[in-house]
């Protein structure tokens, strides 16, 4: 399965990345090589093998449902690129 320039453009868009022509060209070759290398996984028969998502299996790390003091809003907002009236500000979303 060869990866094309259009695939890179499509996936970059999904990941909210803009790329110039040159980066797209380089990435198509480099990522193509990497994916081709990854295909050796297909030499291995994994039928019926359960997937591992975490090496140490823990289930349901519960905590008590208690009200706790967390970091104050204004302190959290100190890192905001733009803020107003205790809220994060973003550019226009619709229209």
């Amino acid at each position: 399965m060869e990866i094309t320039k259009d695939d890179i453009i499509h996936v970059a868009d999904l990941a909210r990345l803009d790329m110039d022509e040159e980066s797209i060209r380089t990435f198509t070759v480099q990522i193509g090589d990497i994916l081709k290398y990854i295909e050796i996984l297909n030499n291995l028969n994994t039928e019926g093998v359960p997937p591992t998502s975490h090496a140490i299996v823990l289930t349901n790390a519960f905590r008590d449902d208690e009200i706790k003091q967390h970091i104050e809003r204004d302190i959290l907002l100190e890192n905001a690129p733009e803020k107003e009236n205790g809220s994060f500000m973003v550019p226009k979303v619709v229209g």
Binding site: A15, R16, N79, P91
Partner: peptide
């Protein structure tokens, strides 16, 4: 670019801001 770190300030809408910031 919303909650912390760098944000591209020259974007006209949210989608453009996401893309410019990350790129």
């Amino acid at each position: 670019g919303v909650k912390y770190g760098f944000r591209d300030k020259d974007s006209n809408n949210l989608m453009e801001m996401y893309k410019n910031t990350r790129s």
